[in-house]
Design a protein around this nucleic acid. Structure first.
Lengths: 209, 209, 209, 209
DNA sequence: AATGAATGAGTATTCATTCAT
DNA sequence: TATGAATGAATACTCATTCAT
């Protein structure tokens, strides 16, 4: 009995936490990051404003936690995509496709991601810099992939970290752009085109016959 | 003499405008975009709050003007770099180097750039969406370059706009990253590496003997 | 008990609203409409500035609500006075006495009344013009009275709306004047004198013997 | 020569003063009293903001002076109308007609009149109470008229000051109302109706057969 | 005498956070 | 645990007034 009670509490906490996070996500989707006031989140969650502070220290912590939760998903799906025994090209396509689908399915969260992630961005005075590691760990997945493929002799990637960052940001730019495009191409096509361009290069080499 | 007097006054306007812009830039550098309150900018400029409103209609206009001023410089230098008769590789290196040096010399402004430019970002509700064209015109310089090089047979760039965006964002990512690196490589090296990677591709093609 | 608690909360809203309105009234009395800043009202109410916004959407809404609340009282008492079966003279005296006592007991609010009511007044750009109907409905009570008395053959009032307005403003002028008079006559005397003058006329008609 | 110079100065002062007052009047007409900022008045007058302070101590003094100037006109025309040897009814009609035409020809100024004149009105904290006398002197013209007509045996006006005030305000109410009427009657008709009502009274007296 | 750049106190309003219930 | 009333610091913006030129 006592055990039941205790576990109820222990279970309720994470549940409420999740509810609040999801409410916050919906609010951000609808009204932007700036419009995501504590009141708006509380309303959306069907809770009182003060209750939010029982589960999060404050607004900043809530947003950071939001980003972290989302990132865990992203990392998991990128990891799954990049690992395996297929050729590097195949895995790279899968990894970037994962990046695409993550942000496409949460396009509204994308802005939070961008803002929370870029260190020193807008509200950085308040927000802890510690959000950065999130992005680092995302990028570093690709970096590891490049490093291994380089070691394998599959890819020529002597600067895997930089390459990973370059790719990640370039892809993000494309995804962001898609948000404002009326009829963007299918994600898969875009992924294939990116990977193809980067792997093959875009320079036309004249055959010295 | 009278002419001198008059010109003094006429000159003061642009000077103050510039002073304020520079103060704003410094504040943004130190405290982020959100921390760039009118009071903080006025303090930094050694002026009274109200004085700012003699030169700018309001905060939004000031920030937009800031971005525009900077962009004009960027566009001019990118244009100069990309035009010419040298081979595509050379010009591309020059163009990206221009992008590098622009942001390296104004690294603090980078954030404004990013935020003002990305439509829908944090404070976008207030800001006019019209800032977007700034970024568009920057990217479109590279797009045009790719389109022409594609027509020339110098590059394989069937989707020049997307490629330009991908490159621009990728490069921005690298620049941004440099801000937090203790000892970043020389910009020129980094530029060469990027261009090389993109032009040649990173896949190692086995000779089919 | 639980019911008591709940009703406590539900009761607090109107109470606070009333408190704020009364504080606002006091401030207006002491410092004029323009001096009735949100800060001043909050101070007078013993509340924080922000609290005011929990009960009123903003300054304009507060002032309008103030006027409306007061008007409802006025209308009710004028209605009661003008209706009935007594002779027109008696009811008219009662109606004007109601107008008198309303403004005498709230002399400080009089200014709000005047300003809020007169369309196009000072701060009218902000305020919705819709306040006007308040005054209209007050005047129209007298207009109806005159119209009916005219139909009855009790009074000669072929232009009841104009007459009502003329009377209302004339009486207001007298009330306003009383505010600065050291020893104004008793309201009742003044009312009788007004009604007498208007009903009998002031011209001395010589008997044509 | 010296004399000429000096007189130039002496003449310029009043001229500028007049120019500024007229500019102020135009601004008030167009933008309301609250919109009559020093800048707006200066622009309208084709002068610099600072110049206004050479002719008026400040905004309040300017507005008061404005009211005073206008009142002098009003008083003169009312005086002319009320004096004479015609019967009281005729002179009273002329006096009220003067009041009508004054405000009809300066309808935009009417609001200033109302606000500046009513002691304790909106901005009264700043404005000196001394504006009141303006209104007093206007009203007192009618008061004197009633007193004399009472003494003459032409009118029954035992309380001439109150009657004058009552009439003045009542008439003002009608004028003000005309501002928002689409097709107000001719002023002369309205004047005749008012005077007739007040002189004859509106009560229908049954003949005691 | 005339200017207009500079000032800064003052305004309404927002919202993260606290705490008594 | 949950509430939501209360808070007050912070923000953008206005405008009467001053004063060096």
């Amino acid at each position: 009995m006592v055990g039941t009670r205790r576990s109820l509490r222990e279970v309720l906490g994470p549940v409420r936490t999740k509810e609040i996070e999801e409410a916050a996500l919906r609010v951000i989707a609808a009204r932007g990051l700036e419009g995501a006031t504590m009141q708006a989140i509380a309303d959306e969650a069907g809770l009182a404003k003060g209750t939010l502070y029982l589960y999060f220290e404050g607004r900043d912590e809530l947003l950071i936690h939001l980003a972290e939760s989302a990132f865990e998903e992203l990392l998991a799906s990128v990891d799954a995509a990049l690992s395996g025994t297929e050729p590097a090209r195949t895995r790279m396509e899968a990894g970037i496709a994962a990046q695409f689908s993550f942000f496409e399915s949460r396009r509204d969260f994308f802005r939070v991601f961008v803002e929370v992630v870029h260190p020193g961005g807008a509200a950085s005075a308040r927000r802890k810099r510690s959000c950065n590691p999130l992005y680092q760990s995302f990028v570093s997945r690709f970096a590891r992939f490049f490093r291994e493929a380089h070691a394998n002799g599959e890819l020529h990637a002597p600067l895997p970290e930089r390459l990973a960052l370059f790719m990640a940001e370039g892809v993000n730019g494309l995804i962001l752009n898609r948000l404002s495009e009326p009829n963007p191409p299918l994600p898969d096509e875009e992924v294939r085109w990116i990977v193809d361009s980067v792997l093959n290069g875009i320079e036309i080499r004249r055959s010295s016959s």
